[in-house]
C-alpha cells in the first residue's frame, strides 16, 4: 500500500510549506527595491551590491570561514579517533566518562558551553581571538563528528579489518587501507556538519571571541536586533544558496561513493 492517503498528502504539503515558505519570502524580498522590507517596490539587486561594499561584513565572513575550516578539520580528526576508540577500542579506564563527554555536548545549552570555555580561557590567560573560537568550536563539533562516524563504524563488517590483519597488515595499515575508505562518506559528512555548525554558531562565538575577531553570525545578530533589513536578506539568501548547493552536491557524491562501494563488495563476493 504505497499510495499516499489524503491525510498523509495534506500533512506533507502543509509541513513542507511551513518549513520552506519563510525562507522563500526572505529570498524574494532580498530582491526588493525598497528599503522597507515589507513593501514590494520592484525588482533590484542593489542590496547585493551594497553588501559587496560592506567592509565589516566581508571581514567577518573571512574570519568565519577561516574558523570553520580549521575547527572542522581538527574536529574531524579528533571525532573520528573518538568514534574509533568508542566502537573498536574495547574496555579502558574511564570509558563511561569518555562516552558521557561525547554525548553531553550534543544537548548542552550553548550559553553554558560558551560561558565555561570563556572562563577557562581567561583562567589560563589565553587572549580571545580566532584561536579561542577555533578551540571552542572544535570541542563541540568533534562530538557531532564522532556520533556520525560511530554510526557508520557499528554497521560495517568487522571481519574485513580482521582479514587485513591476518593478511599481514599492521593495525595502522589496516585502518588506512580498509577502515578509512569504508567510513570515508561518514567522515566527509562529519566534516561538513562540523563546518556548518561552526559557520552557524552565534552564542559560543560571542563568548569566546575578542574584539579582534568578529564572526559573521555575531555581526548579523547585532544588525538584526535593530530590525529587518534588505541587506541582511541579501546576505541570508547568499548563505542559503551556498548551503543548498553544498548539501545537494555532498549528498550526490556520497550516494555515488556508496553505490560504488556496494558494487565493489558484490564484485569481491563473486570472485571469492
Amino acid at each position: 500500500m504505497n499510495r499516499l492517503s489524503w491525510f498523509n498528502t495534506v500533512s506533507l504539503t502543509l509541513g513542507f510549506a511551513f518549513l520552506y515558505i519563510p525562507m522563500v519570502i526572505l529570498i524574494i524580498y532580498s530582491f526588493n527595491e525598497s528599503k522597507l522590507v515589507t513593501v514590494w517596490a520592484g525588482f533590484s539587486t542593489k542590496w547585493y551590491g551594497e553588501l559587496a561594499q560592506n567592509e565589516a561584513f566581508l571581514n567577518a565572513a573571512w574570519v568565519t570561514i577561516r574558523v570553520a575550516v580549521f575547527s572542522s578539520t581538527l574536529a574531524t580528526i579528533l571525532g573520528t579517533a573518538a568514534a574509533y576508540v568508542l566502537v573498536r577500542g574495547g574496555r579502558f579506564f574511564g570509558r563511561t566518562l569518555f562516552s558521557g563527554m561525547i554525548y553531553a555536548p550534543l544537548v548542552m545549552p550553548e550559553v553554558i558551553t560558551g560561558l565555561s570555555l570563556l572562563l577557562l580561557f581567561i583562567g589560563i590567560g589565553l587572549d580571545r581571538g580566532i584561536l579561542t573560537i577555533v578551540l571552542a568550536h572544535t570541542t563541540f563539533s568533534m562530538c557531532f563528528v564522532s556520533v556520525v562516524v560511530s554510526s557508520r563504524l557499528v554497521t560495517f563488517d568487522k571481519s574485513l579489518e580482521e582479514a587485513a590483519l591476518d593478511l599481514g597488515c599492521s593495525p595502522a595499515q589496516a585502518f588506512r587501507l580498509v577502515t578509512l575508505p569504508i567510513i570515508a562518506p561518514a567522515v566527509i559528512s562529519g566534516w561538513l556538519l562540523a563546518f556548518t555548525l561552526s559557520l552557524d554558531d552565534l552564542v559560543i562565538a560571542s563568548f569566546t571571541s575578542g574584539p579582534s575577531a568578529t564572526t559573521l553570525p555575531i555581526k548579523i545578530f547585532s544588525a538584526v536586533r535593530l530590525g529587518v533589513s534588505p541587506e541582511i536578506n541579501a546576505l541570508s539568501t547568499i548563505m542559503i544558496a551556498v548551503v543548498t548547493v553544498g548539501v545537494i552536491a555532498a549528498s550526490l557524491v556520497t550516494k555515488r561513493a556508496m553505490v560504488r562501494q556496494k558494487q565493489d563488495e558484490l564484485a569481491a563476493a563473486r570472485t571469492e
Partner: peptide, 25 residues
C-alpha cells in the same frame, strides 16, 4: 523528502529565526 527535511537543518539557525521577524511583525 529526507533531503527536504535536512536542508533547513543545515541552514543558519539565526537566519531561520530572522525570517520570522519579517513575517510576524
Amino acid at each position: 523528502l529526507m533531503m527536504l527535511v535536512i536542508l533547513p537543518f543545515w541552514t543558519s539557525f539565526l537566519i531561520r529565526v530572522y525570517a520570522w521577524m519579517g513575517i510576524l511583525s
